[in-house]
Design a protein around this nucleic acid. Structure first.
Lengths: 162, 162
DNA sequence: GCTTGTTACATGAAGTTTCAACCAAACTGT
DNA sequence: ACAGTTTGGTTGAAACTTCATGTAACAAGC
């Protein structure tokens, strides 16, 4: 009532953005849980590993790619290790670094989840949008990321761009 | 490596979107925590209440407006009640409904947090974008929301649009 | 007046994320 | 060689969310 706020139009766009992103995230979580029993965050970790040479990454690198804090990743990988989807091994080059490596079992889960995930992203995002809109969305997210970086904000835990 | 995936360009847009929204959410959380000791989700609850006649809403309605599940809202409001920011009272018209009402103390917190929040949204979202891009973003989120609704996905917990 | 079903909300337990240390390896300058 | 700092990662506790379930109010049908 007495809260200062955006213009009518801006508020509409803003709340629309919050709603759309929340709903999208929810939809993806739901599909992944149904198909493979994992969350979107977990899928991100497994997918990132699956796409590398040797299905293996340093924790650090993996944290950056998945926009995860070190702590979160450490807990998450510990769980995945317990489930047999990932193994951890000390890196020979740098003894404080740790490799997380996707197991065959973990790869199986990714392959199980990926097709449904990708097709849902397509169905909910790329198919509904025109080619022009996809281009616009790319430009907009780039602009926003640049603005946030300029303002000193970065993905959780990271100041450096690696 | 063997994961089916999007085209190069699509993947770039998709990961960019995920990164931008995650970073944005993080930035807003950080500012709200600094300024008022609350999370973005909590701010949403308090702000929604602050903007109604009587600073009061049915839990149901509040859950919808804040894209929250009933359970989450129930826990969150319980905590806010403990902090003295909100009171709960049975609705006289419908004895299973509950009113959540913002206290003066709660209002004080909203007023403390709002200016910084709004100006950060402006700084990170509306200022960097051109008027055309704001329009585009509005159209894009509307399209996505419509597509998700058509595919049977809605904000957490809700099938009905109220 | 009794089932049976649905709506509104609460709650305890389990899972996840963040927070605040912590440890050990690797640099840094002396 | 050696204090001090930075880097890479872990860990337990606290905070938050979700999940499954419970209770009470209302609604409908018999």
């Amino acid at each position: 009532m007495t809260t200062p706020w955006l213009t009518e139009r801006e508020q509409q766009v803003w709340l629309g953005l919050l709603r759309a992103t929340a709903t999208l995230d929810n939809a993806l979580d739901e599909q992944l849980r149904r198909d493979a029993g994992i969350t979107h965050a977990t899928y991100g970790i497994l997918a990132a590993l699956s796409m590398t040479e040797g299905r293996s990454l340093h924790m650090q690198h993996l944290a950056f790619q998945t926009r995860s804090s070190q702590s979160r990743l450490s807990h998450a990988v510990a769980k995945l290790e317990g489930q047999g989807y990932v193994t951890r091994s000390p890196c020979p080059d740098n003894r404080r670094a740790v490799h997380a490596t996707l197991t065959d079992e973990g790869m199986r889960v990714v392959l199980l989840a990926a097709p449904g995930h990708v097709s849902l992203v397509r169905e909910l995002v790329f198919d509904p949008l025109s080619a022009a809109q996809v281009r616009q969305l790319g430009d907009i997210t780039s602009t926003l990321s640049a603005a946030m970086a300029a303002a000193g904000y970065a993905a959780p835990d990271f100041a450096r761009t690696d």
